[in-house]
Each structure stands twice: as C-alpha cells, then as structure tokens.
Design a protein around this nucleic acid. Structure first.
Lengths: 367, 367
DNA sequence: CCACTACATGAATCAGGGG
DNA sequence: TCCCCTGATTCATGTAGTG
C-alpha cells in the first residue's frame, strides 16, 4: 500500500521547525509530494534588498552591479523559476500554493506559475485599510498587494472550505478582495532597539483566512521565506503543522521566540462549518426500505408537478421512470435537478421536502 | 526644431475615427511618438471548459467569442509582445499606457510590459460592487479585474492630475483600488435583438477616472481594442481626441452610433463617480481573524448564557452552531437576536459587548 | 404613481464518486 | 480512463409585471 510510504515520508519531515539556509537547497532536501500547502512571500525588489541569490547560490551583489533593467529581470526570473520548481516538487498532487507580491514582481511570478503548469484558482487582492500614502502625490496610493492561489496542476482536488469562509464573511460568499489592516501595533515584532524586526511582516489575519480556507487541521504548511514566522504562528494556533525556511539568523531568532509563545486553539474551536458535500451519501431507496415513504405514494414539487414512488426507489412521472433527480430534471426541462429539495410530501397536513428524511437518517448515522 | 515635425504628424492622425482592421497593422500605419495615452482591453484568453449553470438552472452566457481563442500561452504571448511593441512606438516620450485584464492574462501582460522597457507606475484594482458570484462554491468570487498603468520608460514625465483625482475621491488621495459597478442598465448597449452588443463592455466610470487622472484636454487617446467604444465616448465627453481600432464590423457600427450621440462635457458622466459612504458592514469573522477574539474564547450574555468562538467566526453554544445572531436567538428562544449587543466578553476585568470591536474596526476604515 | 414581487444576468479557467 | 449518476450551488442590480 502507498499508505506506509506516505507515512514514512511524513515522519521524515522536519515538522514545526525552522530550517536554516537557502530556500531552494532546503526545499530540494525535503521529500517530494509531501506538502499540503505552500505560502510564499518572496523578496520583491532585488535592487533594494540584499538577500537575493542566483540558483547556483552565488550571491547577487545588487548594490554594486549596474545591470540594465532587462538583466536584472532576467536574474529575478531565474530565481523565481528555481524556487517555484522546487516548491512544485514538494507539493502533494492535490496540494496548493499561495504567493504574495506587488507590481514589482507579481506579474513575473504569475507568468512563471502558469508556465510551470500550476493552475491559477484565483488572484486575491489584499486591500490595506491603512496603507502608507503617496507622499509626493505623483501616483495612486499603493493600497493593495496581490496574492495568487494555484493548485499543482489543472484538475487537482484542492482544499477549499467554502462554508467556513462564507461564515467568516457573515454568511456571504467570500470575494477575491480582502480588506485587512497592515501589521502594526502589538502584533508588529520589534528588535532589541525597538525597531521593526522585519520590513514586511504580514498580518496574522491574512494567514488566518488562507489557512482556515485552504487547509485542514493536521495539514503540513511550508513557508520557504519564513521571515519572522507569521505563517508558522498562525499554523500552530490553528492546529496545522508548519515547516519554515529562513536564511537570516536574526529573523529565525525572532520567529523562534514568537513561536514558543503561541498556543494551539481548542480542538472544538478549530472545527469549522462543513460543506454538505462532506456528508455521507444516502440512497433515496433507503427511505422506501425503511418505510419512511411507501411505494405508490405521490410526491409533489413546489410548482405542482407530481410523481409516484416505486418499490425500487425510482419514481414514475409524466411517463418517465428514473431517479428522483432524473424525473425532476425531466419535468422541469432542466439539465439537472436536486430531487432531495425538489420533491415534497404531505405529512401531518403540511408539505415537507423529502430531504428531512435524509437528514433524519444522517442524524442516526452520527449517533 | 522638432515642433514642426510633431505638428505635422499630429495633423496626419485620423482623429476621432474608428479604424477597421488588425490592431497591430493599424498601429504600425500610424506615425511614431504621436499618442498621449493608450487604453487597451485586449482579449483575456479565458480558458473555459463546459457550460456553467446557475443554481436555478439558467445557463451563464459565457465569453466564447472567436476573438478570445488562443491555442497556447506561447501564441498569446506572441500576440501580446507584438501589440505592446506597436503601442510603444506610437507613444510620445511622456505618454502612458493602461491595460486591463484578469488573472488569465494580466501576469503575462505585466511581465512583457516590463521586458519591453515600459515603467510600471501603479497596478490598480477595479473592485466590482456587483460581480457575478461563484455558482459552484469552488473558489472565491471573482470580484475584481486588474489594470496596469505604465509610462513609456523610466523617468518619463507622465501626466497625473493629482488634485483632480483627490477631488473625485472626496478630498482624499486616490488609492490603487477603485470600487465601480459593472456596466449594466441603461449604459449597457444592446443589439437589435435586445442582447448585449458586446460581451465585455467596460463602464464609463472606469474610463472617466483614467482620462481625468492621466490625460489633459486635447490629448490624443488611442484604444487598439475599441469594441463598442467606451474609451471614445468618454474621451469625447471630456474633450480629448480619440482613435479607435476595431476589426469586428458589428462592434464598429454600434460604436459609431454611440459616439454620434455623445456631446462634450456631458454632465451625467461626471456624476457617475460621486461616491456615497455608508456605514460599512463588518463581518464578525474579522474579529477572529484579527485576533480581537480568539477561537475557543467564551462569550457571555447579560443573562448568563454562554457560547464558544470557533475559527471560522461561528459560535457553538448549547450544542448549536451558527452565527452570533443565530446562536443568541436559539438560546433566547427568540426569532432573532442582535449578536453584536447580546454577546459580551471579559476584558480588563470588565464585561464588554463585542460591538466595541466592531466600532474599532469601523473607526480604522474611516481613516 | 407607488409598493411589491418575479425574473433576468454579469470576462467563469466552477464536481466528484462509483462502476 | 471513461462513462454515468448523484446532487450541490448565487449576489447585486435592473427591469418588467401586478395590484
């Protein structure tokens, strides 16, 4: 069985630790197909940040070099190609990836994602409620950053906790634009001098939404640009395992301290609103077998259509025999129909959808 | 002097007309360095599979037009490279370009822009106030599109009417996220059958903001994918000259008719952007995401009822899971309940209603 | 003319399991 | 791998129709 093999590799993962070193080398040292979710916040700007390395791990001395624009994009693209490739190897077939960036780098990441066969599921806009204004008045206030959510390949069965996200949004479907404040106040980590410990610390609210929405408890989340460990902190709170990779010792130290203070939330608090799709399937025939419905009884739709129950759990209506769904679809001239909510029956003088019998059976199954 | 030369080419421009034909050929036939602003809404290269139905079984009218079909990313990239190159030749040295796209194509456009030496000034998010929902509940609602604003090259003196934009935005600096409804109602052009004349007509409010903000009266605005002529219509209203290129005769005809009716400085166009500020809705889930409340914390009502917070912003109390309002109503045996004032939490030794957190978030949002 | 209900529709990469 | 069947799933607007 593959289970043993999977268990072995999972056991081999350095769970809930921060790995030192170059993110590409560190990723290549981990087992393939072992990660459920990757969140990556790579360096944006190779001109200003000194932490960019070529794929061969030689250091790019950005300050002294005088590349023209094209050359510097070329180097950035090589870097992007290398780490996205390493990330893709690590993902389980149904795993997914989030990246975040600004207009300086996000277009290059998005194009490379598509070139490598990742399948974009959404681009998401983090709309900052308190961005820094444009002081010189020469451009629009840079009030957002862009995230890309992608599965490993087209057709993969990625995790999406639709109902939980809808609950987070007061019962309305979650949109692709998220209003979240930038990280400051008590959440913003400071170093011993009182300066910010990391220039681009991401807010925990952002990771909370990502991890609640696109992972399950017990999943393994990798962050190859760990920084001060927001991904790890939220993963730990939410009962997910994390792996961080960070080459700067000062960031690792801050992150270690931060993580040691985090406590996991109650198990019961981590359960989120489940989708109906997760419920066990109940064949309509069971309702007949159990005597909840009798062969010969007549079902009625809200708009007055009728069909008769047969002993084998099929219906006959308008001369057509078939499942509750097929007969309903036929009567409506529709491509499909959910017979459970379409058909009603009279009970105690009231017309009730047959779905209540299914709920009754499911309730018994849970006892 | 170059002035004479410039005047000659400007005179030669086919101002305020719609050119027939392929956009690249048509652009190459125009004089170099002659255009102030280009607005481009190219095909998005949507890759749709089967039909999509709404939950009520009605079919979604998808963008399946022949002009949006490309065989591969490679073919799409060649197309993008060619038209962006032709566009750049046309721009005056201080001219600028706007492109709009979705995650299907915008990353490829953005990367190619940078490769060609365009200098990105902002990416701007058009947040749709009324987008189409995600009917199957498999992804986030696709609620935005992305625009990129770029000058012809780094260091160019692009046009940016800072004060005009600030005035449009109630005296506050204009941000990079714009809330504008999709184009429907009376503005949406219909054909003789009453169907939409173009599948992707852009709202005039979007072009209004772009042209007021990044052109001056008398400037020449080119739209190489003219469609039904929103760019031309708004340009004419605002006293800018336009050149449209459109190869589909049916779109050209609709655009001609539309433009003939437009009068300069149409007052109604100016009213479109007037913003109204209502009290923003704050989902309870945001309190959890932001760490104001922790999953597992216990909320208490004034009369001693209790419930526990879950990670997705729902509560569990008395075995019932649901929103703060639903659980409150259940515990009280009432038909409804305002959870914001019903539930309290202990902070600093005192019991405070959770509504104070909502007020706090609203205060941040109004800043 | 107003109030109310019903219906239509928008740039969409929109399912998953069993046989 | 393919086919077949079950059955889950929507928000904001604008317009038309009814009383």
């Amino acid at each position: 069985m593959t289970k043993t093999k999977t268990d072995k590799s999972v056991t081999a993962l350095p769970l809930n630790t921060i790995l030192d070193g170059d993110c590409i080398e560190a990723m290549n040292a981990l087992p393939a197909n072992s990660i459920d979710l990757i969140f990556a916040d790579p360096p944006y700007n190779l001109q200003l940040r000194g932490d960019l390395h070529r794929p061969d791990n030689s250091r790019v001395d950005a300050v002294d070099d005088h590349w023209d624009q094209f050359d510097s994009f070329k180097v950035y693209d090589q870097f992007t190609r290398a780490w996205l490739k390493a990330a893709r190897r690590l993902l389980k077939p149904d795993g997914a990836l989030w990246v975040i960036g600004s207009y300086h780098n996000v277009f290059r990441m998005g194009a490379e994602l598509q070139n490598q066969g990742y399948w974009i599921l959404n681009d998401v806009v983090w709309r900052k409620s308190n961005p820094m204004p444009n002081f010189r008045g020469k451009r629009f206030t840079n009030a957002h950053e862009t995230l890309i959510w992608a599965s490993k390949s087209e057709g993969a069965k990625y995790t999406f906790n639709y109902e939980a996200l809808k609950a987070l949004n007061d019962g309305v479907q979650m949109r692709s634009d998220w209003v979240i404040p930038i990280c400051n106040g008590g959440e913003r980590l400071k170093d011993e001098n009182g300066d910010k410990a990391h220039p681009t610390q991401k807010p925990e609210a952002l990771l909370h939404r990502i991890l609640v929405g696109t992972t399950n408890p017990g999943d393994v989340v990798l962050d190859p640009f760990f920084g001060t460990g927001t991904t790890g902190a939220v993963a730990k709170m939410l009962g997910r395992d994390f792996i961080g990779i960070e080459r700067e010792e000062s960031y690792r130290k801050v992150a270690e301290k931060r993580l040691s203070r985090i406590r996991k939330f109650d198990k019961s608090a981590l359960e989120v609103t489940a989708s109906k799709r997760a419920e066990p399937r109940v064949p309509f025939g069971q309702l007949v077998e159990r005597g909840m419905l009798r062969p010969g009884e007549v079902l009625t739709s809200m708009n007055g259509k009728q069909a008769k129950v047969r002993a084998d759990g099929t219906l006959i209506g308008d001369g057509i025999k078939g499942s509750i769904h097929q007969v309903g679809a036929h009567l409506e001239g529709a491509p499909s129909c959910n017979g459970w909510t379409y058909w009603c029956i009279r009970r105690d003088g009231k017309s009730v959808p047959i779905d209540i019998f299914r709920q009754q059976i499911r309730a018994e199954m849970n006892n």
